[in-house]
Amino acid sequence: MDVLSDVIAAMRAGEPRSARVRWHAPWGQRFPAVRGSAGFQVVLQGSCWLMPPDDGAPIALNVGDVVFLPHGSGYALADSPATPRTEPACDPLNDPRFEDRYASATVGKNGQDNSQAITVTLCGGYQLDPGRAHPLLRDLPEIVHLPARLGRRPELRAAVDLLGGELDNLRLGADTIVPALLDMLLLYILRAWFDEQSERGTTAGWAAALGDPAISAALHALHRDPAFPWTIQVLGNQAGLSRAAFSRRFTTLIGHPPLTYLTWWRLTTAARLLRESDAPLGEVATRIGYTSEFAFANAFKRQYGIAPGRYRRRSGAETPSGELGATAR
């Protein structure tokens, strides 16, 4: 798997939810901060304003604009910055108005149907496990705003159209189609943001790493095959750089040396296998590159503070954090 796909697979928890909402002016809606979630808003018709957390400057949203909130921050939407947010706070993952995982709703009609005052949005929420947060997502800002631009990001527009169409007319197969489209939408949003950072010449962090052909090649290689006996020299060969130059550039962009990141990713992958499969511990160890179950168990306990067998038994409850850097201590 490539880096972006791996990140989403590692952090995903529970089922995403989405709704197509028809807003009738005047309207205002608060969305509270929700730990362990990420949300999005897409304007399908009309326009509205997004009020960021911490009283930031309002952001005008128009047809085709996409907003992604990767850290579960609170915010508000309204037809105007001056409109009071009188509606109860809406959590797309738990709001009783959206008990169905995929729904359509009308808000604030007030007995009138003035098409000039209607805004239609596509909103949704993803459940992400904060204990498995990948540094790639932690690098993202509180709000990712992707304004609509003619001819830009046709794949993102297509995913929005398909998802909106499904929610407007749920039919047989929706329980498979909608989650797949939500995953597609999330990946297209992330791809679009990282592409924009690369075009702007971002010089630090994961945006720069994924835009750097040498470091990106090494990252994709170790994500495709974490069990391979990678060394700095071999990864440098993948990147087309000398051992020293590769190690220096990787550490500068990622914030950790290559083998520290590799160990962290192997154990993050192991945690996913323990949660999602019944593979024996020895098989899990082999699949992530450990030659013995004993060595794997020791490394896993250093990162997660718990033996892999106990981690698996507790996987239905809140699991310990395995943040990058723990393996270096």
Score class of each variant (00 low, 15 high):
residue 2 D to H: 15
residue 2 D to G: 12
residue 7 V to L: 13
residue 7 V to I: 10
residue 9 A to G: 14
residue 24 H to K: 07
residue 25 A to M: 10
residue 34 V to M: 08
residue 35 R to E: 15
residue 48 C to W: 11
residue 51 M to W: 04
residue 55 D to M: 11
residue 57 A to T: 13
residue 62 N to R: 13
residue 74 G to Q: 08
residue 79 D to N: 15
residue 80 S to Y: 06
residue 81 P to Y: 09
residue 82 A to F: 11
residue 88 P to V: 09
residue 90 C to N: 06
residue 91 D to M: 06
residue 98 F to Y: 13
residue 100 D to K: 14
residue 104 S to N: 07
residue 112 Q to N: 12
residue 112 Q to M: 10
residue 113 D to R: 09
residue 122 L to C: 06
residue 125 G to P: 01
residue 127 Q to E: 14
residue 128 L to N: 11
residue 128 L to T: 04
residue 139 D to I: 01
residue 145 H to D: 01
residue 145 H to V: 07
residue 150 L to Q: 10
residue 154 P to H: 01
residue 154 P to C: 03
residue 166 E to C: 07
residue 173 G to C: 09
residue 179 P to C: 08
residue 187 L to P: 01
residue 194 F to H: 11
residue 195 D to R: 13
residue 201 G to S: 07
residue 204 A to Y: 06
residue 205 G to C: 06
residue 207 A to F: 01
residue 215 I to Q: 06
residue 222 L to K: 11
residue 223 H to F: 15
residue 224 R to D: 15
residue 224 R to I: 07
residue 247 S to R: 04
residue 247 S to C: 10
residue 252 T to L: 12
residue 257 P to I: 03
residue 258 P to C: 05
residue 260 T to P: 00
residue 284 V to M: 12
residue 293 E to F: 00
residue 294 F to S: 15
residue 294 F to G: 09
residue 295 A to I: 00
residue 296 F to Y: 13
residue 302 R to Q: 14
residue 303 Q to I: 04
residue 304 Y to V: 02
residue 311 Y to D: 06
residue 316 G to K: 14
residue 317 A to T: 13
residue 324 L to G: 06
residue 326 A to I: 00
residue 327 T to I: 14
